[in-house]
Write a protein that binds this DNA or RNA. Structure first.
Lengths: 237, 237
DNA sequence: GCACTATATTTGGTCGACCAATTAATTGGT
DNA sequence: ACCAATTAATTGGTCGACCAAATATAGTGC
């Protein structure tokens, strides 16, 4: 009997508003560069509080779709309608990305970050990476989980790449990966020791300024980690 | 005389609060999993309105750092302290990324997307890409600006890569690039025709399933576009 | 008739108050 | 003394009102 009830109210008010605004844009009622109705007007027309409209706009603004100027108005920014249609659809479901894509993308970003780091790293960068590596080693020696330290090592490499955007994107996707890894809460000494040696190798290539080797080493490392995760997730089931 | 005045208030109230919360976390006063003070208490202690605290928490939550449950409280989620320190720092300055990094990252993402698309594209994908290419050609033939159609072509390739995350990341950074391009509002027939031929070549490689060639062609194409933008920005000054 | 100024209105930004759900405390019964 | 149920306090969520800046409008002087 319970099957007769469908899940209701699964989407929050702000998501509903985002959907509404998308309708206004895709239907051509809101051309790029055009000012959209005042928050009060929108709130009244959508039959909802202004706070919700506000949150929706803020979210859309974060993705660069809208641009709001104080005491002046909110406008549809730059990008054309054609692309927007595909864009906003993804904003809503960005959170639950499939894990395979996540890992694959991470490999892409990190490999390139390692290559760039090898080319551009300063002495200070090397020091920071080494420090992170030491912290990682200490944590392993103590037999504790070193997920955060592992992440920090990769983060320092991203910083050494001198590409702020690349680093930001890594920061966007890595939390999801870390969360997934933590589910298995593995403390396999052997695997972590192997990871440590791979880290060491990557660092060495970056120190020598060998971009190609650094990239390859990073790719191999992430492949290993990924394989390990897979085998463990099998065990968990 | 004007040099005596330094820029003030460059950081918004919410950024200040984010910084404060970071302090609470990194100093160990807020361990992961621990509930942070109520919004009212925080607002009062920081001497600021609750709205600002609310916005800050929302932003932090978006990055997966905090997790707030209705009528229960907000807790520090998952990820550990060590990594957090580097992470939160970047949340603040994510928005204003330098253009060079932006373009460089775009090349990385698109190159890989083209390679993956060559390996995984279905017939439907090919059709969509071709359609986008035709629309691009028509717009050029008409002598109009075809920025959106250009973007759409690249978007379809990203879709053909079957990597949702990769596509999402591209969608995040491309608007900024497009905005920058639109400033010069160029309608150079010669350049756009060249871009069209390059698009055609990329499509051909994807159709043939030649990942390496597709990647190289994409890289060359983006390099050309980037060079063109640079030369034009010189003229504009 | 035109340009500039002063005023009125509209805008997003901010704040405090109220709401329902949750959690802690209290009370009453056993 | 312990447990249950009821009440009180606290929580994030929501809303409407007020604020200063930006814009549109009316007015005034030339």
């Amino acid at each position: 009997m319970l099957e007769n009830f469908s899940t209701i109210k699964v989407e929050s008010p702000v998501d509903k508003i985002i959907r509404q605004i998308r309708g206004l844009i895709t239907s051509g009622q809101l051309a790029p560069g055009e000012k959209l109705p005042a928050e009060r007007k929108l709130a009244e027309k959508l039959g909802v509080g202004r706070t919700h409209v506000r949150d929706a706009i803020q979210k859309l603004e974060f993705y660069g779709i809208l641009r709001t100027r104080p005491q002046s108005g909110t406008v549809v920014a730059g990008i054309g309608i054609t692309a927007l249609e595909g864009l906003i659809g993804d904003v809503l479901k960005l959170e639950k990305s499939d894990f395979a894509s996540l890992v694959e993308t991470r490999v892409i970003l990190e490999t390139n970050a390692a290559e760039l780091a090898a080319e551009r790293r300063t002495d200070a960068d090397l020091l920071a990476i080494e420090k992170a590596l030491v912290a990682y080693k200490d944590k392993i020696r103590a037999g504790e989980s070193a997920v955060e330290e592992d992440l920090l090592f990769h983060l320092k490499i991203a910083e050494a790449s001198k590409n702020a955007v690349l680093k930001s994107l890594m920061l966007i996707i890595t939390p999801d990966i870390v969360n997934d890894f933590k589910q298995y809460e593995v403390c396999d000494d052997r695997a972590e020791l192997k990871a440590f040696y791979e880290h060491q190798e990557i660092l060495e290539h970056i120190r020598n300024g060998d971009a190609g080797a650094a990239g390859v080493a990073m790719k191999v490392h992430l492949q290993d980690v990924s394989d390990f995760s897979k085998s463990n997730s099998f065990l968990a089931r």
